[in-house]
Amino acid sequence: MPSPAATAYRRFLPWKPWLEAGFWLAATAINAFANSAVAILEYQRRGEPMATWEPLAWEWSSNLMVLALVPATAWFTRRWALHWDTWRRRWPLYLAASGVWSLLHIGGMAALRHAAYAAHGERYVFGYWPREIAYEYLKDLRSFLLIAGIMLAYRWLLRSWQGEARLLDAPDEGAAAEPVERPERFLVRKLGREFLVSTADIEWLQAAGNYVNLRVRGHDYPLRSTIAGIQMRLDPARFARIHRSYIVNLDQLAAIEPLDTGDARVHLKDGTALPCSRRHRDALRERAGAGEPLSARPPA
């Protein structure tokens, strides 16, 4: 019987894209409105004349560009995720990325402000570019690191919720209980608890950035590895590479459906369909059926 946590996680998944998009939209709107109100009140407190649309143009142009950069930031932090064992060598990459992020933010923000001022019959003056870019970068560095930190922390929470896998390491002393280079089990940590799962229970594997998702009895467990790295540690008699992003357990194979493109579609016993590239199709057919013709359709 599924645990309450597992059930809650499965219920969360259909809502996940909407909640993520809603979070960034809400954060953008709240920040833009709050900063605009502060700017208006500040000018009023000093008794300086200020058209209301100006601080609105300043803040919304900035926040809309931040929102536009969220997908790129998500891709970057997923592709080069930070971990305790990688942050020392990757922090220069994040520092460089913050510079690119800032230039895109400043350029887009300035363009939006020029358009807003032109719509009101006025001209927007950015100021002395070197000084203003340095000033904006100091603010953008903080914003970039905050957004990246939120994304990394969010993914860590999701992995903790769904469970994160790792292969067993060799003990500090004595012989290993099982072969380390080709382990028979892997360790799953979920919500602070750890349990062992047999490698034979893996149905298929999918590359996902710095992780490989292991499909086990309807659950996905991310394992920090490359698809090539984990393939080297799996039993080649049981697992086969079918695509640059997929490995399948041959015991789970139900049928191989050829496609007009020369590729194929692999159907598993649970009804899952996975892509099979043409470079792997013939080898998979030979291993799965000893050279028998490919099934035209999956079995009913």
Score class of each variant (00 low, 15 high):
S3Q: 04
P4S: 03
A6E: 15
L13I: 12
F23Y: 15
W24F: 14
W24G: 08
L25Q: 05
A26R: 09
A27D: 10
T28V: 12
A29P: 12
N35D: 03
N35G: 14
A37F: 06
V38C: 00
E42M: 11
P49R: 00
E54I: 15
A57Y: 03
W60L: 14
L67D: 05
L67P: 12
L69V: 10
T73G: 13
T73I: 09
A74P: 10
R78D: 15
R78L: 13
A81M: 02
W84H: 13
A96Q: 01
A96S: 10
S98P: 06
L104D: 05
I106E: 06
G107K: 05
A111T: 14
Y117R: 06
Y117E: 02
H120M: 04
G121Y: 02
R142Y: 00
L146C: 01
A148F: 02
I150L: 14
M151T: 07
M151F: 12
L152Y: 04
R159N: 14
R159F: 15
R159M: 12
W161G: 11
W161L: 12
R166C: 12
R166I: 01
L167M: 10
D169A: 14
D169K: 09
D169W: 04
E173K: 10
G174V: 05
K190M: 13
L191Y: 08
G192Y: 08
F195S: 08
S198E: 15
T199V: 13
W204G: 07
W204P: 07
L205W: 04
Q206D: 06
A208M: 04
L214P: 05
R217F: 11
L223F: 08
L223Y: 07
T226M: 10
A228D: 14
P236L: 08
P236V: 08
S245D: 12
N249P: 13
L259E: 14
T261G: 09
A264D: 15
H267P: 00
H280I: 00
D282W: 09
L284P: 14
R285F: 02
E286F: 07
R287I: 05
A290G: 09
L294V: 11
P298C: 04
